[in-house]
Write a protein that binds this DNA or RNA. Structure first.
Lengths: 154, 154
DNA sequence: TCTGAAACGCACTGCCC
DNA sequence: GGGCAGTGCGTTTCAGA
């Protein structure tokens, strides 16, 4: 259980990261296999947790979330209780797509998607700044998405 | 063609963003519909581009890409040719999961996944720093993923 | 582990309302 | 728009190698 991945597993993961609608039959063809072993391997990769989930990727522009903002947050005090509270509250904010606790001077980096700059303003004013213990808050806007993928290099 | 989304469309998109393996039948059930209209709407949402693709999300730790780094890059010169070249070269780097052209002093923000700090070092030394015209390069490491989703709030 | 066959359910179509 | 009924295909299971 949970042994290392062989080359066949890696190929399957690479394919499914790009297109999870590929059928076991199609994947089998590129691997010179039948669909049964491919199917079983996918099932095993799901069960072992290598594949966490399958999702649809939407077009940010079309669904009107065009504005992406990177926001750097530093806390005023750095005790456990404050940090945990902050993490909890951030997770609940729907506008926040990513949040990382960082090494270095800045404590957290957030990526936020909104409809407009005005909506971002409201987000900061009514939601983010309501969180206790935020010291410095520094927002910079994305001019252009150069690259954006959910794929990992394996 | 390309009209506004109604509430049914939005519900379908919300569900598929969380779990694209949900069948039309299952989605239909939560909407008190049959599978035919749900199926047709999904097809339309794909064709209109609202749904860009379907992908498998892998576990970063299990596939050994545990180290996430945020790297801020500023260019030495800001002419069109240099910027385009930079964008092209970044897109080709497999370790780079995200790259944004920013407003403000920092020109680009990159998110990079590697197996180890050492591998990140090699990435900077042999790949990133080979790109022409990079002025300042500032790397900070992620201590913890607080939130990380491909979902948009719609 | 893989192959091949067989069962089942869903995707997908066409017709009706 | 949505419902209903049908067909083909992929998923899923299993015996055998």
């Amino acid at each position: 259980m949970m042994e290392q991945l062989d080359q066949t597993d890696i190929t399957i993961l690479r394919i499914l990261q790009k297109d999870s609608k590929k059928t076991a039959k199609e994947i089998a063809k590129t691997l010179n296999l039948t669909s049964s072993p491919v199917y079983e391997r996918i099932r095993r990769l799901e069960k072992q947790g290598f594949i966490k989930k399958y999702v649809a990727i939407l077009d940010k522009k079309l669904i009107d979330r065009s504005i992406t903002t990177i926001c750097q947050v530093s806390m005023r005090y750095h005790n456990e209780a404050f940090i945990e509270k902050f993490e909890e509250q951030i997770q609940a904010l729907e506008e926040v797509q990513e949040c990382y606790h960082m090494a270095g001077q800045v404590d957290f980096v957030l990526k936020i998607n909104t409809k407009s700059l005005e909506e971002y303003h409201d987000f900061v004013k009514y939601k983010l700044s309501k969180i206790e213990n935020i010291g410095v808050l520094n927002s910079t806007f994305v001019l252009k998405d150069i690259k954006h993928t959910s794929e990992f290099y394996i």
